[in-house]
Design a protein around this nucleic acid. Structure first.
Lengths: 236, 236
DNA sequence: CGCTGCCAACTGCTATGGCAGTTGTCCATG
DNA sequence: CATGGACAACTGCCATAGCAGTTGGCAGCG
């Protein structure tokens, strides 16, 4: 198993020994695609990735199948597998899809969220407030990630959790595409997050859904993934 | 180019033969679960299914992985894979998720649908009208399937097509769960379908989305998957 | 030069075998 | 009888090997 020339373009998958090789290959490849190391159109064969990761071909094949179901790669039978082309237009579509799904997730969460999760959300809000005042975008990103992941988990719906997981990966891809810094509106995002938590605390599904969806769409507009107002976010 | 058209001209090859074993295993297992042959909690091991289908274990394993991502099975590492429990509550959740996704799909379709697809939709509407007058629920189901599948394809978004495909499988599962006949409201459904096509023809995304989402939610309510009014379909 | 046909080097796909962890059973022990 | 511990029969997981299409290039013919 040893003695392969160690020209690894993808970082070695040494950590997390408890996860299966297929799972690790899946995350590794997804991360590599999201961060641009594997640009669109790049051919990725099971064998080359396998030798590069130091594992067999089956786990890689499994990972590629899952990535295909996520839409991140396309494979032509007996011809090859390539990283899918995800242009700005499709990124916008996926954003709108994600907005709708985050909306229903928030509605479901509003119906069954418990005090513990509400407390955790409050704690995240405090961190967000501090991060917004300090302008610490890195901490804000982390808090934002936890914020949405917590709401997803609060639904208890595996389909939602999985789908939104891959959709958020596309969101990361969009940010990595944008050279330089991604434009944001920190105070507005903070206010929206607070409004969402308020709706969740009142267990108001309709309100929670509307606010969450508006929040996602607004953020997509401010960082240029979606065109500004022609999309009906607010009545003119 | 010339070779390609020539090949297409003489290719009545059965689709069944070109599909990979993994794909066939996936569809067959999914069908078996949806139709109740594999009830919730049933243990399904790679090897037993493999010998039963007369194939190897890898394609089965692939199929199980995809089913797991669809949420139809859960697998505990090194312990076994069982058919997932999908109770009425989760069926309702999945229905609401599907309503939201069908909504955005319809909005996207409204923006880019061409005359050909609109014509096909009109043809389906005629069949639906005839089927409604005759009370032919079987023909209506088939037309309904084509109706929604056509709209999904019109979006050109693979993520939507795939997700809605598995979600519609859950819809079928719900119908098979209901012993006897599923309650329906044929005239209302027909009117809604006509309204959706009208919105698509006017290329009005917002209207198309609202009508589609309302249509799905209403149908879920009439056949008992969702509780009647507490969900905000209309003000009380 | 241009075209055809073949051949080697790919590719995805499947079968086989075996590893390591889990579970259920049965016998020995207290 | 009750309890505990090995053992066999599972399970999912992975590596190896080979099959069958696909592709690109290169020789050989026109």
């Amino acid at each position: 198993m040893a003695a392969e020339t160690a020209r690894q373009r993808l970082a070695p998958l040494a950590e997390e020994d408890t996860l299966s090789l297929g799972e690790r290959a899946y995350r590794r490849l997804r991360e590599s695609i999201v961060q641009g190391m594997l640009p669109a159109g790049r051919k990725i064969s099971e064998r080359s990735i396998a030798t590069e990761l130091g594992i067999s071909a089956q786990p890689v094949r499994e990972a590629l199948r899952r990535l295909e179901q996520d839409g991140m790669v396309v494979t032509l039978p007996r011809r090859g597998t390539v990283v899918a082309e995800v242009g700005p237009a499709q990124l916008g579509e996926l954003g709108r899809i994600r907005a709708a799904l985050e909306g229903v997730a928030c509605a479901l969460a509003a119906e069954r969220i418990d005090a513990g999760s509400l407390g955790a959300l409050a704690a995240i809000l405090k961190r967000m407030t501090a991060g917004t005042e300090a302008g610490d975008t890195e901490a804000l990103d982390e808090a934002n990630e936890e914020f949405h992941a917590l709401i997803h988990r609060a639904t208890g719906n595996l389909f939602l959790i999985r789908s939104l997981g891959s959709l958020r990966a596309y969101d990361h891809l969009g940010r990595h595409r944008a050279i330089g810094s991604t434009p944001r509106d920190l105070p507005k995002a903070l206010a929206e997050h607070k409004g969402i938590v308020a709706a969740l605390r009142r267990h108001d599904p309709a309100l929670a859904e509307a606010r969450m969806r508006h929040h996602i769409l607004r953020s997509l507009v401010t960082n240029g993934v979606l065109p500004p107002p022609p999309r009906p976010m607010r009545r003119p």
